[in-house]
Computed example of a mutant assay.
Amino acid sequence: MVNIIDKFLQDLKINGTAEKTVMDYSKFLKNINRQKSLEKWDKTDVNKYILEKHNECFAGAQICKVKLKRFFTWAGKSELVSHLNT
């Protein structure tokens, strides 16, 4: 069975996203999916992750916000990321 991350990556490829960008999303999403399945994330998980990244590096947090927003919007869960300014 193809999981949600693989479906998202496939969609990126179909829509002409550069291979480097697809690989970047793949690493990012699979890494955070190990902590907790993305299918089970809620708004609290999103906020917690962004705050962790913000403490490491502001620019890194901004990139994570963009990636999370793109993924969750695609997945039909835009309510999890609608509060993020990107």
Rank of each mutant, 00 (worst) to 15 (best):
W41L: 03
F71N: 01
A18V: 08
F28V: 00
V66W: 04
G16L: 10
N85Q: 13
T21W: 01
F72D: 02
D11F: 10
E52Q: 11
D24F: 06
I32T: 05
N55I: 09
Y25E: 11
F71T: 00
S82Y: 01
V66L: 10
T44I: 13
E56L: 13
I50F: 03
S26F: 08
W41V: 06
A18I: 06
L9R: 11
S82K: 13
R70T: 14
Y25T: 13
A18M: 07
K53F: 05
A75N: 12
K27W: 09
Q10H: 03
K53N: 08
G60W: 11
V2T: 11
L84P: 03
S37V: 01
T73E: 14
N31M: 10
V46T: 09
I14V: 15
K53M: 12
R34A: 07
F71E: 00
K30L: 05
E56R: 15
V22W: 08
Q62D: 08
L12H: 07
Y49R: 12
L29S: 10
D6A: 05
D24L: 06
K20F: 07
A61K: 13
H83Y: 14
F28I: 02
L38W: 04
D11K: 12
C64V: 12
E19S: 13
Q62H: 09
I14W: 07
Q62R: 14
D45H: 14
K27R: 14
H54T: 06
D24H: 09
N55M: 06
Q62S: 11
K48G: 00
K36M: 07
L12S: 08
N47G: 01
I63L: 10
Q10K: 09
K53P: 00
V2M: 12
T86I: 11
S37K: 12
N33F: 04
Q10R: 06
A18Y: 08
K43W: 02
L51R: 15
K36Y: 04
T86K: 11
V46K: 09
